[in-house]
């Protein structure tokens, strides 16, 4: 090299002659790197017993939700018996699991619905609310946070004042207004949860983006002439992704709790079975005072198990994103 002319020799002068046959296969390489990263995260995540148990629990509920029509002995909203005049239901059946002779595993409701079937179909509603709300919460929050944090200035001010405004909106009045405007349905509850949940994710991701954009590797990309979109997608997003996964997993649990709570106060979808609507019906028929524990205890246990599993998985993931917690 040194004997070349001193004016402007280039180390890459002969690089064009190198055959491009050994060009690395980009897609295969990217896929392999992703596999390795996911594998590493997976092994870190499943390191802990509580996380493994929580994942088994979630997997169990997912399977139940998928195969609900095969597992449930009866349609969830079909009356199993009726009085002669088809109006009044006098008595609920006791569960056969504790020796009742009704033939229904968890008995029936005062309306004559099979509780076991309702419980199984309720899993669908819970997971639907949880997963859709989590995906949108994490997605919207991450995108808004990245844009606000990276561009700063007026964009940041506008988006963060919107977040401040949303922080001022209380949950129940918002749901009541949405349901009054759009009618009671599971989708409106999901919508309300999304509207009110992405604000926290956006705040956290923005603060991360604010510190990331000042890091020298972002400056290096700017010096190389990278576009804003390139920097946001290649440099900022991969570094905040663990944090948005974390907020997504917490959002699952919050969304399920919110749906149960909203349904319990009677704003749920009357045509969908969810654990929250089951609790609401049991309260309406005073199941507690009649000692009909099989009506309200099973949905309560299911809500508790799924929510606790969601939080434990999020907690386990938090230790990946923040090694100081380990």
């Amino acid at each position: 090299m040194a004997q070349e002319e001193s004016t402007r020799s280039s180390v890459f002068a002969d690089v064009e002659e190198v055959s491009s046959s050994d060009e690395i296969n980009k897609w295969a390489r990217t896929a392999r790197l992703w596999r390795e990263t996911l594998k590493e995260h997976w092994s870190l995540l499943t390191d802990e017993l509580s996380v493994r148990l929580s994942m088994l629990m979630v997997a169990f509920f997912v399977l139940v939700a998928i195969f609900a029509p095969f597992l449930a002995p009866n349609p969830p909203l079909e009356r199993q018996y009726q009085t002669e005049d088809q109006i009044l239901i006098e008595k609920w059946a006791e569960p056969s699991i504790v020796g009742g002779d009704s033939g229904y595993l968890l008995g029936t409701t005062a309306e004559g619905f099979d509780i076991f079937s309702q419980l199984i179909f309720g899993t669908r509603a819970a997971l639907l609310v949880g997963i859709i709300a989590a995906v949108f919460t994490a997605g919207i929050g991450t995108m808004v946070g990245l844009v606000a944090g990276y561009y700063g200035g007026t964009v940041d001010d506008a988006l963060m004042r919107l977040v401040d405004f949303l922080y001022g909106m209380p949950l129940l009045p918002t749901v009541i207004i949405l349901v009054a405007l759009l009618g009671p349905s599971l989708w409106n509850i999901i919508l309300a949860v999304i509207i009110l949940q992405w604000r926290a994710t956006a705040r956290v991701i923005r603060s991360q983006a604010l510190s990331l954009r000042e890091r020298p590797f972002v400056k290096a990309a700017q010096v190389a002439g990278a576009s804003d979109w390139h920097i946001i997608s290649r440099h900022l997003a991969p570094n905040v992704l663990p944090m948005s996964f974390l907020y997504g997993s917490f959002a699952i649990a919050w969304a399920i709790l919110t749906e149960a709570g909203v349904s319990f106060i009677g704003l749920g979808d009357p045509n969908t079975v969810s654990w929250g609507t089951m609790l609401q019906a049991s309260r309406a028929y005073s199941a507690l005072s009649f000692g009909a524990w099989w009506w309200f205890v099973p949905p309560g246990i299911c809500i508790g198990l799924l929510v606790i599993s969601g939080f434990l998985i999020g907690r386990g993931y938090e230790e990946i994103t923040n090694p100081k917690l380990q």
């Binding site: 890459f12 190198v18 491009s20 060009e23 690395i24 990309a221 190389a224 990278a226 390139h230």
Partner: peptide, 15 residues
């Protein structure tokens, strides 16, 4: 390789 991709320069691996 990032600067090469930004400027669409070929022969990435060799460079």
């Amino acid at each position: 390789a990032e600067p090469l991709r930004i400027h669409n320069i070929t022969n990435e691996t060799a460079r």
